[in-house]
């Protein structure tokens, strides 16, 4: 193996013109990824971006790597075949809330529970962009859109809760307004062995502008984003004056640190095997209009699916030798006609 070439953002940028709407949050996510990859110690030829359908799904066309823009919702299924047969590759999936949670919900949860080696970036803009503005499975209840002129009546998914419930081993949230946070989160997701799920709050300025503004705008962040830092008490606010405590019934609550004392705060533990705390954290905010945790909710080490699949093959070959087709054809009763 030759040394990994030194690259810059340009090397990871394809010659295709980027065609998202001007001002779309996707641009900053693309930039964050293109600028991060030179630092990850990976090769372009061993990097694959896969996607389904939707605005986010155009992402692979803009990366100068191997890539596939597939069909609606199916990227995790396609990635499962690729990642299990090619453990040498870095497989990324770029998806959206409709692609991953609606039409592709089944593939997503199964890829997560199996812990197939892939990094899933789910751009959540809480709307269908490419089909021009219908409500999505993460749209808040009562959302008025073209397909819900009287307001939506379905309860939305909480993507972080869903991923944790699906036995995901790495679950994180970041947002399109903070390149540093995105890059740190993506790096962690990439380095994770198995399936990593990252929800990226992404602004669709055409169909759902400002959906996350209350929490991600520069002025709001300090008081509205709750950074999760492994091993640290969970606190937020301009002067870290607020924090999170756990009540005796297990549920989490936001409090003034001064009122409870620092010692009473929940210490974040992303590696805890029991997903209870991570799940409770995912329920802390009911939507992007109140203080919301960002960062890594859960990062545990579990066996990776492709590795386990390979291990069974190695064991079988150790036991029986490499398969002999001539012998297999004769493994039932045979007889010879002279």
């Amino acid at each position: 193996m030759t040394a990994i070439p030194v690259t810059t953002r340009k090397d990871w940028t394809s010659d295709q013109e980027v065609r998202w709407c001007p001002g779309c949050g996707d641009y900053s996510i693309l930039a964050a990824v293109q600028m991060l990859l030179p630092d990850l110690g990976v090769r372009r030829e061993s990097t694959v971006f896969l996607s389904g359908i939707g605005c986010a799904a155009r992402f692979p066309y803009y990366m100068n790597t191997y890539g596939m823009h597939s069909i609606h919702g199916r990227a995790p299924a396609i990635a499962t075949g690729l990642a299990t047969t090619r453990p040498d590759l870095d497989v990324w999936i770029v998806t959206g809330d409709g692609d991953a949670l609606s039409i592709g919900g089944n593939h997503l949860i199964h890829a997560l529970r199996r812990n197939v080696n892939m990094t899933i970036l789910m751009f959540n803009n809480q709307i269908y962009g490419l089909t021009k503005g219908q409500y999505s499975p993460t749209s808040e209840i009562s959302k008025v859109t073209k397909s819900t002129p009287f307001g939506s009546i379905d309860t939305p998914f909480n993507p972080i809760s869903l991923a944790i419930g699906a036995e995901a081993t790495f679950v994180a949230r970041t947002h399109d307004m903070d390149r540093g946070h995105m890059q740190e989160t993506f790096r962690r997701a990439h380095d994770h062995k198995g399936a990593a799920f990252v929800e990226v709050y992404q602004n669709c300025n055409v169909f759902n502008d400002g959906a996350f503004e209350k929490i991600t705008s520069r002025d709001a962040r300090a008081s509205m984003l709750i950074p999760l830092v492994h091993g640290e008490p969970i606190r937020f606010g301009a002067d870290l004056e607020r924090g999170v405590v756990q009540r005796s019934d297990g549920h989490l609550e936001m409090v003034e640190v001064a009122e409870v004392g620092e010692g009473a705060l929940v210490v974040h533990d992303e590696v805890r095997e029991d997903p209870g705390l991570a799940f409770a954290l995912s329920r802390l905010a009911s939507g992007p209009h109140e203080p919301t945790p960002i960062g890594v909710f859960r990062a545990v080490e579990h066996p990776e699916y492709g590795e386990e699949m390979s291990r069974q093959i190695v064991r079988a070959q150790e036991r029986a030798g490499a398969g002999d087709l001539e012998a297999l054809l004769r493994s039932g009763s045979t007889w010879t006609i002279e």
């Binding site: 597939s70 299924a77 075949g81 990642a83």
Partner: peptide, 8 residues
């Protein structure tokens, strides 16, 4: 889908 991914 997985078969197609493997083929890719």
């Amino acid at each position: 889908g997985s078969a197609l991914g493997a083929a890719f």
